[in-house]
Simulated assay, not measured.
Amino acid sequence: MKITIVAGARPNFIKIAPIIRAIENKRKIVPTLSYRLVHTGQHYDKNLSDTFFTELNIPKPDVNLEVKSGSQAEQTAAIMVAFEKELLQNPCDLVLVVGDVNSTMACAITAKKLHIKVTHVEAGIRSGDMTMPEEINRIVTDSITDYFFTTSVTANDNLIKYGADARNIHFVGNVMIDTLYQNLDRISAPDFWEDFNLEKDHYMVLTLHRPANVDEENSLIELLRGIDEMAGNRKIIFPIHPRTKAILGEKKLDLKNIFLVAPQGYLHFMFLIKNCFAVITDSGGISEETTVLGIPCFTMRNNTERPETETIGTNTLVGTSIENLKKIFERFLINGPKKAGIPELWDGKASERIIDILLQK
C-alpha cells in the first residue's frame, strides 16, 4: 500500500508526525507499506511550518507545492491544480488528509476526481457554524471520504447523521494527543522565559487568530485591553499570529500585562501551556491539549467542534465578548478549576490504530 500524506498548516504537521512514526514502525513488519509526504505550502512562515518538521522529527517533504497565501478561492484552487499534477506524476493507493484546513478539502476533492480513495483523520467534528471556513472544509471533505477516523463517539454520530457508511467509520482517538505524549519529555522553555521572569502557574497564555476576534482592528484592541486589565498581576504571553500582527500594525497598545512574542515552535509552545495558570484562546486544537494537561482553558467562541473538551475536559466556552470572559474568569478565580477528565482513547495510540485498520482495507 502506497499512501500520500498531505500537510499544509501548523495543526496538520502536529497530526501527521505520529502517523508517519506509526507507518515507519509498521514497515518493519510490512515492507510493502510506503508513503509520500506532500507539503502544500499553505503555511510558509518558518515558525508556522519548517520549525515543526524539525522539532517533531518529520521527514523532509517529498515535495512542497508552495501555494502560499491568497483568498479562500485562490488558495484552494492553487492547491488543487498543484496536487493534481503531483498525483498524476506519483500515483498512490490512498490519499490521507488530516484536520480541516483548505489543504484538507482541496486535496480530498482532487484525489476523488482522480478515483483515488481518501482517508480523513479527525473526521466528523462539527461546530454547526457555517461562517467558519473550517466547517465548510469538514463537511465537503467528509462527504467524499472513503475511510473516516474519529476522535470521539460524537464525531461518529455526526457522520452517520450525514449519511456516511458506519462500516467505514473508526473511532481511534486523537493523533494530536499522540504527538503530545511522544514529546512531553522534550519540551523546553523559550528564550524569553527568564527575560520575562516567568514562573510555573503564575502566567497565562493567549492565542487569537479567528476572523471574528481579530479582523476588526478597533474591536481587537478593545479585546486585548480588556484581557490585559482582567489579568490582575499575572503576565500573559501572547504568541501573535502574523496575520493578527499585520492587523495591529504599529499601533501603540499600552498593555501592562500582555507580552507579544513571535509564533512559537511546538516544543516551546507546549512548555508554555503545560506550566501556565490558564489559557485564553480561540483555537480548537489547544483546548484538546489543555484538556490532557489539566490546564483551565477559556475559548473565545460561541461554539466548538470539540464538545468533549468542555463536557469532559478543562475547556469553557466564553463567547466573543470581553464582558462575558471577565464574568466567567472571575467565577473561576473564586470557585477554582472545574472537575475534568481525559476523553476515551486519548491515550497516545490513535496513529497505531489508524495504520492497523488501513492495512486491513
Rank of each mutant, 00 (worst) to 15 (best):
66 E>A: 14
66 E>N: 15
66 E>H: 10
67 V>M: 02
67 V>A: 02
67 V>Q: 04
68 K>G: 03
68 K>N: 11
69 S>E: 13
69 S>D: 14
69 S>L: 01
69 S>I: 01
69 S>C: 06
70 G>W: 01
71 S>R: 02
71 S>C: 10
72 Q>L: 15
73 A>T: 13
73 A>V: 14
74 E>K: 03
75 Q>I: 00
75 Q>S: 00
75 Q>R: 00
75 Q>N: 05
76 T>M: 00
76 T>V: 05
77 A>N: 12
77 A>G: 14
78 A>G: 15
79 I>E: 02
79 I>D: 01
80 M>N: 04
80 M>F: 03
81 V>F: 13
81 V>G: 03
81 V>Q: 13
81 V>P: 07
81 V>D: 14
82 A>W: 02
82 A>C: 02
83 F>W: 06
83 F>L: 02
84 E>A: 03
84 E>P: 05
84 E>D: 15
84 E>S: 07
84 E>G: 13
85 K>H: 14
86 E>I: 00
86 E>L: 02
86 E>A: 06
87 L>K: 04
88 L>R: 14
88 L>I: 09
89 Q>A: 14
89 Q>G: 14
92 C>I: 01
92 C>F: 09
93 D>M: 06
93 D>G: 14
94 L>M: 14
94 L>N: 13
96 L>Y: 09
96 L>Q: 08
97 V>Y: 08
97 V>I: 05
97 V>E: 09
98 V>R: 02
99 G>N: 05
100 D>N: 12
100 D>R: 01
101 V>E: 08
101 V>C: 11
102 N>M: 03
102 N>G: 03
102 N>Y: 01
102 N>K: 04
102 N>V: 04
103 S>F: 01
103 S>V: 00
105 M>H: 04
105 M>D: 09
105 M>C: 12
106 A>L: 05
106 A>I: 00
107 C>F: 06
107 C>L: 03
107 C>N: 04
108 A>Q: 05
108 A>C: 07
108 A>F: 04
108 A>G: 10
109 I>W: 09
109 I>K: 05
110 T>P: 13
110 T>D: 10
110 T>K: 02
112 K>Y: 09
113 K>T: 13
114 L>M: 13
115 H>G: 05
115 H>N: 15
116 I>Q: 08
117 K>E: 15
117 K>F: 10
118 V>H: 11
118 V>F: 05
119 T>W: 04
119 T>S: 15
119 T>R: 00
120 H>P: 10
120 H>S: 09
121 V>I: 15
121 V>M: 09
121 V>A: 08
121 V>G: 11
121 V>Y: 11
121 V>W: 07
122 E>I: 01
122 E>H: 04
123 A>L: 07
123 A>R: 03
124 G>S: 07
124 G>D: 08
124 G>N: 06
124 G>Y: 06
124 G>W: 04
125 I>D: 13
126 R>P: 13
127 S>F: 10
128 G>L: 10
128 G>P: 12
128 G>C: 09
129 D>K: 08
129 D>Q: 09
130 M>Q: 10
130 M>K: 12
130 M>E: 08
130 M>W: 15
131 T>D: 13
132 M>I: 01
132 M>C: 08
133 P>K: 00
133 P>N: 03
134 E>R: 01
134 E>N: 06
135 E>L: 06
135 E>N: 07
135 E>K: 07
135 E>R: 01
136 I>Y: 12
136 I>N: 11
137 N>T: 03
137 N>Y: 04
138 R>N: 10
138 R>G: 11
